[in-house]
Nucleic acid binder design. Structure first.
Length: 127
DNA sequence: CGCATGACCCAGG
DNA sequence: GCCTGGGCCATGC
């Protein structure tokens, strides 16, 4: 349904597995790059790169992905994406403590649970 | 093809 | 808790 021959959809397909997972995260909850990486079968670094490459057209709630410290990853100097990410999360009801940290135990996507997904061989590409 | 650069993570000190 | 160093791997020049 799309012509990627000359369309501006470069490597998105390479990150599609990660995007598919992120789209499942409900508003008000978060997941870490590491968790996504394990489920998507890539490294945490790639998961992070995938988020950086995500664009509005991909319809990926990238703001719900944070680092293993439970914090919003800082962007490079001059980029304000991290600030917006925090505001978006707070608007969804996510709480940051005095250390700018999110209580992973309380906000990490528990829904069906990552363990459940892994135990059931969840396949991002076959949903 | 080599080199530099990331929205990472983990182990140590 | 903070700072370092090493390992990861995709991208772009």
């Amino acid at each position: 349904m799309n012509d990627e021959s000359k369309d501006e959809a470069p490597m998105s397909s390479r990150y599609e597995r990660v995007y598919a997972l992120v789209r499942v995260i409900p508003a008000g909850q978060v997941a870490t790059y590491g968790q996504l990486a394990r489920l998507a079968g890539c490294t945490a670094r790639v998961a992070g790169y995938a988020m950086a490459a995500a664009r509005p057209a991909d319809e990926v709630p990238w703001q719900r992905v944070i680092n293993s410290q439970g914090r919003v990853s800082q962007r490079r100097e001059g980029a304000d994406g991290d600030v917006r990410q925090r505001r978006m999360l707070e608007k969804e009801g996510v709480i940051f403590d005095a250390y700018d940290r999110i209580d992973l135990a309380a906000f990490t996507w528990p829904g069906p649970g990552w363990d459940w997904l892994e135990a059931n061989g969840y396949d991002p590409g076959g949903m």
